[in-house]
Simulated assay, not measured.
Amino acid sequence: MKAYIGKAYIESEHNFQRYIIYAGSAYIAKMVLFQAGIISTNSSENFEIYRERNFDDSENASHYEITKLQWKLGWKFYGMNPPDPETSIEKDYKRWYQTEYLTIKSVDKKR
């Protein structure tokens, strides 16, 4: 399926949240953001929708595979410090992922 990125701005153009949306068209992707309450019908200038072919057909990928692709594309992981994708290899990313995410997952299970 086609992948779109919904980029919702929070207070400024430098503060935003990105969402990966799988849809048949940009219009449907926009409607998904409206229905999820991520963007309101009043704020047409506080978001943008664009195609991201790198995520096409990845709707069934694991969390690890999606975050690895985000890492390779230079996405930021707020509050986390992954290895630099320009100077690191996938093995470095996997070690970081296991430390960050598997620790979070085990804490959640204890609750």
Rank of each mutant, 00 (worst) to 15 (best):
R53N: 14
R18V: 01
I49N: 00
S58D: 10
D108N: 12
I49M: 07
G37R: 02
E90T: 10
W71A: 04
M1A: 09
S62H: 06
V32P: 00
E86A: 15
S43C: 11
Y19F: 11
T67H: 08
D108C: 09
L102Q: 08
D92Q: 05
P85H: 02
Y27E: 15
Q17M: 12
S106M: 06
S62M: 09
P85M: 05
M80T: 13
I10T: 08
R51K: 13
K94C: 07
E13N: 14
N81G: 07
E13I: 15
I89S: 12
L102I: 06
F34M: 07
R51C: 06
L73K: 14
Y9V: 10
E59K: 09
Y101M: 04
A23V: 09
E90V: 07
I49F: 02
G24P: 01
Y50F: 13
P85R: 00
E45M: 13
E59A: 08
P83A: 04
R95V: 10
Y4G: 02
Y50P: 00
L102V: 06
Y50D: 06
W96M: 04
E90C: 04
A29I: 01
T103N: 11
P82Q: 01
Y4C: 02
L102P: 03
W71Y: 00
I39M: 06
H14L: 13
E45R: 15
G24H: 11
T67N: 07
S44V: 10
L33V: 12
Q70V: 02
I104H: 07
K94L: 12
F16Y: 15
A36K: 14
W75G: 03
P83K: 03
N54D: 15
Y4T: 01
L102E: 14
M1I: 06
P83E: 04
S88D: 11
E100M: 08
T67I: 04
N15R: 14
K68A: 09
S44W: 08
M80A: 14
F47N: 04
R111S: 12
I28G: 02
Y4W: 07
S43H: 13
N42L: 11
Y64T: 05
A23S: 13
W96T: 00
F16N: 06
R18F: 02
I28A: 11
R51W: 05
I21Q: 01
E48A: 09
P83T: 00
E52P: 02
L73F: 06
Q17D: 12
Y19C: 04
E65S: 08
K109H: 11
R53S: 13
E52H: 13
K76N: 15
T41F: 12
W96Q: 04
L33M: 15
T41C: 12
A26E: 05
E11S: 12
E86N: 15
